[in-house]
Design a protein around this nucleic acid. Structure first.
Ligand SMILES: [Mn+2]
Ligand SMILES: [Mn+2]
Ligand SMILES: [Zn+2]
Ligand SMILES: [Zn+2]
Lengths: 165, 165
DNA sequence: TCCCACTTGAGACTGAGTCTAAGGAAGAAG
DNA sequence: CTTCTTCCTTAGACTCAGTCTCAAGTGGGA
């Protein structure tokens, strides 16, 4: 889905629920649709780059608003601040992350989801959501790891490489 | 496993690797084996209750030490600070949490683990660890939710109710 | 046009976690 | 036992992300 297209769908979604899409919120959402995963502070900087008058609080409030309405998901990876991603029309997916280089792969598996449902039923729970993260080493980093025994502790930088639909 | 027993196994584990179990570390571990899940700050308070001279930094360093050696796991649930739990001799398990009352259930499913392995293989990754959290409503909270429409936003308190072996 | 509820900007505040500096154990070697 | 050296600890300052407050701004409906 093209960014502008996604923007308009979100615009529509909010309008349908009479949630005001103020100018500030528009700017924030405009930046979001151009990114995959981002942290709150990244988004603050990003937005302020072009609109310095938009306050930090406003960005955080917008994040909260979108989350409450199911348009945005928060993901706690293991290092650094939580990452967000728009979920609007996208299919549900989980994440696989390389601990060395920070590459993130999105995956989805129906069987996995089905097993989850069965498990939760056993306990009489009603499933609301879940978070499934796999951590490991990508092909590239596995090789690198063998050469340099001492872990070259580069701070993993998050980056999206591949998306599975 | 009895607390004292678990303590001694950890003691042994560290001795085998010539990792010093100082008096301070002993006090921290002694408290840990008496708990299920705990946050770092809870542990600081807990330890300082009986040993006020043990610094906050020491508790954090001990948490890091145990994590590095695979004796302790860190879990990011969605609200509040991350929780820790000793994993020493215990079987691997994942967590199911009630969003209303904070009850935590531990579960394990071989099929789930197998599917994970298959998925990660597809991407040429080598799995190091994973985090699988299910969030929902327990039987009790489902009923309560129907009565009081407005969510009674009690701050969920973590509590272990049931363990699956 | 006026009102009122909602939204915002600015900045203070909080809590969790990290870092630093100086002093304190404690094995190893002599 | 004494010295050396390395590791460990304390206390408190510091950082960073996120939350809260409040006065001022905004805008849609009567
Ligand atoms: Mn994603
Ligand atoms: Mn557990
Ligand atoms: Zn990698
Ligand atoms: Zn419950």
């Amino acid at each position: 889905m093209k960014p502008s297209e996604q923007f308009h769908e979100i615009e529509q979604f909010l309008a349908d629920r009479s949630i005001r899409l103020t100018l500030q919120r528009q700017h924030v959402v405009q930046r979001m649709v151009k990114r995959e995963h981002f942290t709150a502070e990244e988004m603050v900087k990003d937005v302020q780059q072009t609109h310095p008058s938009i306050a930090r609080g406003t960005v955080y409030r917008t994040l909260a608003l979108l989350q409450e309405n199911g348009l945005l998901e928060k993901h706690d990876f293991r290092q650094g601040a939580p990452h967000y991603e728009l979920t609007h029309g996208r299919q549900h997916h989980d994440h696989l992350m390389c601990l060395q280089c920070g590459e993130i792969i999105e995956f989805h598996d129906d069987k996995l989801e089905a097993v989850q449902d069965r498990i939760i039923e056993e306990y009489g729970y009603q499933l609301v959501s879940h978070s499934h993260k796999l951590y490991g080493l990508c092909g590239v980093c596995q090789k690198k790891g063998k050469k340099t025994k001492k872990a070259n502790a580069k701070p993993p930088k998050l980056r999206v490489m591949q998306s599975v639909e």
